[in-house]
């Protein structure tokens, strides 16, 4: 039920929409696997955070967004940007730090942004993107009616003051923002039990006056609640928080040995495979065949391999261009 008491009907996704979500998840999976490989081989410097195991959230949420809606994301943000529709080659070139990447090689993985698709940036500061994306929603309400902003973050960020402060303003001003908390149980190297007394981030949202709902790592469940939340926000009924209980398959960053986590816990996390589950469901519902799945997989692998080649052969920034455009 919406705040106005009218039931917002959420149509079930049709075959094409289901397949589109599946393809998005598949693409994210293959991109992240490849990035782990090339990063581990030393092709990319710095830090890399992958979202393997969490592909359902971006695919399901972004299915309701159009190009001019805004998203704000996190250090683990590749999936969100890809789901929002960024160009795979330019995305990869940026992660490789190349001059023709989205951010001229200045952002790398951790701060990737694409104004053309409303991607307001991954953020190296945990929780830093929450008020910024709330500001995007403020701009939507002020200047771009009908547009929404979706703010992705993890349960770790919900302990930052900026989380409560932003939700308070969003609730006060009924901003068209949907907060999507990917609760993977780990704030970097710290389990939720060590930094939160409440079980659900949703509880924190409700305390700020923001309606909230918790769902499992199931793409259709996420799609349904996200659809309702985004439709409400678009029609001016204010913010919503969607919390997804998911699992982080790997460490905080690529190369993290996860000594703090234990092999069993890792194995348990990896048994939660949202993509494999969805694939079986689609095959069961005759939306997809095993053969078609294989073809799509091959297609994604090729696209990713091509993007890596594009990035590898792209020019590095020139030292003389480093400060270009710092001020307008």
């Amino acid at each position: 039920m919406s705040a106005r008491g009218q039931k917002v009907q959420q149509a079930r996704p049709n075959k094409n929409q289901l397949l589109a979500m599946y393809e998005t998840m598949l693409l994210i999976r293959r991109v992240e696997e490849t990035l782990m490989e090339v990063f581990s081989a030393g092709e990319i410097p710095g830090f890399l955070h992958v979202c393997l195991g969490q592909e359902a959230v971006p695919a399901a949420v972004a299915a309701h967004l159009s190009q001019d809606d805004y998203i704000g994301t996190t250090h683990r943000g590749h999936g969100h940007a890809l789901a929002k529709g960024v160009d795979l080659n330019l995305f990869m070139a940026e992660i490789y730090g190349r001059a023709n990447g989205y951010c001229l090689g200045r952002s790398g993985s951790m701060h990737l942004a694409d104004a053309g698709h409303g991607v307001l940036g991954a953020n190296g500061i945990v929780g830093g993107g929450i008020p910024i994306t709330t500001g995007a929603a403020f701009a939507c309400a002020y200047k771009h009616p009908g547009r929404v902003a979706v703010c992705f973050f993890g349960e770790g960020a919900s302990s930052q003051g900026a989380f409560y402060e932003s939700l308070n303003m969003a609730a006060l001003w009924k901003l068209p923002v949907v907060y999507v908390c990917e609760n993977n149980g780990w704030a970097e190297f710290t389990p939720q039990s060590v930094h939160m007394t409440v079980a659900d981030v949703a509880q924190r949202a409700r305390a700020a006056g923001v309606e909230a709902e918790v769902v499992s790592n199931d793409v259709l469940a996420i799609h349904q609640v996200a659809g309702r939340a985004i439709a409400r926000a678009r029609s001016g009924e204010g913010p919503f928080l969607l919390e997804v209980k998911c699992n982080r398959w790997h460490g905080h960053f690529v190369g993290d040995a996860q000594k703090y986590r234990g092999k069993e816990a890792v194995a348990q996390a990896m048994s939660d495979d949202c993509l494999a589950r969805f694939e079986q469901e689609l095959i069961g519902a005759k939306v997809l065949t095993a053969k078609k799945a294989k073809e799509l997989d091959q297609e994604k692998r090729e696209a990713v391999a091509q993007a890596v080649e594009f990035a590898r052969s792209s020019p590095m920034p020139q030292p003389g261009d480093l400060a270009e455009g710092l001020y307008l």
């Binding site: 307001l120 008020p131 910024i132 701009a139 771009h144 003051g161 402060e165 308070n168 303003m169």
Partner: peptide, 19 residues
């Protein structure tokens, strides 16, 4: 509200989106 940290960042986000 009294939350300088977040209304400042909110302004940054709003500016990036045209205000």
């Amino acid at each position: 509200p009294i939350c300088e940290a977040s209304f400042l960042s909110l302004a940054a986000g709003a500016a990036a989106c045209g205000l």
